[in-house]
Amino acid sequence: MTGHATSNAWSSLKGAAALAAPPLAEKRRTFDGRVLLGFFLPIAVAVLWELAVRFGLAQGRLVPPPSRIFTTLLALAETGELWTHVWATLWRVLVGFVLGAAGGIVLGGLSGSAETIRRLLDPTLQALRAIPSIAWVPLFILWLGIFEASKVALIAVGVFFPVYLGIAGAILSVDRKLVEVGQVFRLSRYKLAKRILLPAVLPEALISLRSGLGLGFMFVVAAEFMGASEGLGYLLVDGQQMGKPDQILAAIIAFALLGKLADSLLVFSTRPLVRWQDVVRERL
């Protein structure tokens, strides 16, 4: 009798799980639909502007139609100039991101875990965070010269502050009850950090890394204004000086695509770290 009841309960549980979780094929179709939905807005705007220019509703002189921008991108790609600028920008962002994120993680971790260090460091760092990025440019040129070191340093500064704030804030917002549970089970400091603090901090820490990466792409524009001869920022300046709005918009679109690709790679590479989360967005 007991075995029969257990079997019925197990069957009911499997049925409920099947109802709660859609089939794999259905989930895949839903995911694909959502990905395609993200392309709708930019494509719709591009098509509408192209039609407006072709039918004489707009001149398209200062804001060229997408066909002209695409032609400019294609010409830059065929000559190899585009890839040279893309690689220069990507290399600067990568190095600046690694340096800035490393500093933000270390100082954010120290500031969030030790009150004395936080009281010592945080006021100064918060004051430095309020300085506009462009204000660092003459100082970095004076200290590091006009070449790569000053550009990478400026990007690292832009990445550092959101990562620092995210890490320190994530540590300070850990639920006190979780720590108390670990202390009740007499976990060592290492096991407490590994089993409780690290999983609690990771989601917000990864968001801060994404914010830092986004600011890295913003700061690289200012960095490449500092006498650069390569990079998408240089392509922007060259287009402005030569009166080529199609080149300016081509560089902006290249920035957008490169930034989105870098963000997607960061999300994809860090997804296994938070796979244990059971959040609403995974079930919608």
Rank of each mutant, 00 (worst) to 15 (best):
M1L: 13
K14I: 02
G15E: 01
G15F: 03
A16T: 12
A17C: 08
A18G: 14
A20K: 10
A21Q: 11
L24Y: 04
E26Y: 11
T30S: 15
R34M: 10
V35E: 06
L36C: 02
L37Y: 09
P42Y: 05
P42M: 08
I43R: 09
I43A: 15
A44E: 10
V45Q: 02
V45K: 03
V45C: 06
A46P: 05
A46F: 08
L48A: 15
E50Y: 13
R54Q: 14
G56F: 04
G60A: 03
L62I: 08
L62E: 08
V63H: 00
P64E: 06
P65Q: 11
A75I: 03
L82G: 07
W87L: 15
A88P: 02
L90M: 11
R92V: 01
V93Y: 05
L94R: 04
V95E: 10
V95H: 05
V95T: 09
L99S: 06
A102E: 02
G104V: 05
G104C: 00
I105C: 10
L107R: 07
L107M: 11
L107P: 06
L110A: 07
S111A: 15
S113A: 13
I117F: 13
I117Y: 05
I117V: 15
R119F: 10
L120Q: 03
L120I: 13
L121H: 03
L125N: 07
Q126S: 10
R129D: 13
P132N: 02
L139G: 00
W143S: 02
L144G: 07
L144K: 01
E148Q: 09
K151W: 07
V152K: 08
I155P: 00
V157D: 05
F160S: 07
F161N: 07
Y164N: 06
Y164F: 12
G166L: 03
I167F: 09
G169I: 02
L172P: 04
V174E: 06
D175S: 11
R176W: 10
R176Y: 09
V179H: 13
V179A: 12
V179D: 12
E180Q: 07
V181Q: 13
F185I: 00
S188L: 00
A193V: 11
K194R: 15
I196Q: 01
L197E: 08
P199G: 01
P203Y: 06
E204K: 05
A205Y: 02
A205F: 11
L206K: 05
I207Y: 08
I207N: 13
S208F: 07
L209C: 00
S211M: 10
G212S: 03
M218T: 15
M218R: 15
F219T: 12
V220M: 06
A223V: 00
A223L: 02
A228F: 01
S229C: 05
G231W: 08
L232P: 10
L235G: 03
D238E: 12
Q240N: 08
P245Y: 04
I252E: 04
I252R: 06
L261H: 00
A262I: 09
L265C: 13
L266D: 01
L266G: 02
F268K: 12
T270M: 06
T270Q: 01
T270V: 01
L273D: 04
L273C: 04
R275A: 13
W276R: 10
V280S: 14
V280E: 14
L284D: 15
L284I: 12
